[in-house]
């Protein structure tokens, strides 16, 4: 029991998993971070519109419970590999938004010193081995990190985030197979938001549920409602326990939805306004979690207001930090290609 005392635990006996498992402070922190992810991406989107960020970005707005729920039982030493839609994972694993903004602005104070941008955001010190521009690219890498954990006996658990699109990549199948054969401490987390760019899972994937693929690799396949924080966290908690016990990998399918398009070029012609509206109005993960916290007496309106204000301030400060930070010098273009260079 990570946070809640025994007396408190008894009073919460009939509540969902996270309310039994974690303290009110921890859960309020989760709400804070879910807002932080949402506002970070809104801030990044606005900065992009204003021409402060170039390139493109893939927003995970609507998937915050998935990132937070999966990372909830992870320790700071545990590691993740992430995806092109990876801002939420990065924040959930402990990154500072000011250094993320700085990276998006291409500044030297960014996590990748302006070399990676949105699609390669990483925070190695906090165990985030990096987002990835290649669909499925991080999955075998996560298995390799889990192999390191096993060989060096560090006890680390590795989570590999990927989307529904990646489940049709060869790398997914090769990686799951090896992880199962070698019983590695890795958790495969498919955030199924319904579409690989424009192509729905129904049109692209032969199985109904991506979790069904787990059977082919003799590992548990778990389906959770990715918009309900407690459900995601509970599945992750069990998978982490299994991995730490040396029992091998788990595949978690977190069914969710992205409110925004695939990237900045998306005209949203493959899904209806009604569908998007339904997910935004009726299944928003932050609203669902906030309502639960209120209903179960973990937070009041004042507490919610304080969280929102705190997040707004952190975002504003982060953007200012990024704006004020220096850009790399063009003379340093060749840095970091090889270790001896820098």
């Amino acid at each position: 029991m990570a946070g809640a005392s025994k007396a408190v635990a008894d009073s919460r006996a009939n509540l969902p998993f996270v309310y039994r498992q974690y303290s009110a402070e921890q859960l309020k922190q989760v709400l804070y971070k879910m807002y932080l992810i949402r506002r970070f991406e809104e801030g990044a989107e606005e900065s992009y519109m204003r021409g402060l960020i170039h390139g493109t970005m893939h927003l995970s707005i609507g998937q915050e419970a998935s990132a937070m729920g999966i990372c909830m039982p992870l320790g700071e030493d545990d590691q993740i590999t992430s995806t092109h839609r990876g801002h939420g994972h990065c924040i959930a694993k402990g990154a500072e938004v000011k250094r993320m903004f700085a990276e998006f602005f291409g500044k030297t104070t960014g996590y990748c010193k302006g070399r990676g941008g949105s699609m390669h955001i990483a925070d190695v010190a906090k165990g985030n081995l990096g987002a990835n521009g290649i669909v499925g690219g991080g999955i075998p890498i996560a298995v390799g990190a889990a192999l390191s954990s096993k060989m060096m006996k560090t006890g680390k658990v590795v989570v590999s985030f990927f989307g529904d699109g990646a489940n049709n990549e060869g790398a997914f199948h090769e990686a799951l197979n090896m992880a199962a054969v070698w019983k590695l401490p890795v958790i495969f987390v498919c955030e199924n938001n319904g579409y690989g760019m424009s192509t729905s899972t129904a049109r692209s994937t032969a199985v109904k549920n991506i979790a069904d693929r787990a059977a082919a690799y003799s590992m548990p396949g778990v389906i959770v409602n990715g918009n309900i924080f407690s459900e995601v966290a509970e599945a992750s908690y069990k998978a982490v326990e299994r991995a730490r016990a040396g029992e091998g990998p788990t595949l978690i399918e977190s069914k969710t939805y992205r409110h925004r398009g695939h990237s900045k070029s998306d005209r949203n012609r493959y899904r209806t306004k009604e569908e998007i509206e339904d997910w935004m109005s009726n299944r928003d993960p932050i609203t669902l979690f906030e309502n639960e916290l209120s209903e179960f007496g973990f937070i009041d309106d004042k507490g919610i207001e304080a969280i929102r204000n705190g997040v707004a301030q952190e975002i504003a400060d982060g953007i200012e930090f990024a704006k004020a930070s220096p850009s790399p010098d063009v003379s340093e273009t060749g840095n970091y290609v090889y270790t001896e260079q820098a």
Partner: peptide, 27 residues
């Protein structure tokens, strides 16, 4: 444990080696 036969999975195997190298091993 130190001379590991992989499945016939060149992409996955190479990726595992990359991931292991990234996290402190010398494959």
């Amino acid at each position: 444990e130190r001379v590991i036969d992989t499945p016939i999975s060149e992409l996955g195997g190479a990726g595992v080696a990359v991931g292991a190298a990234l996290t402190g091993m010398r494959p």
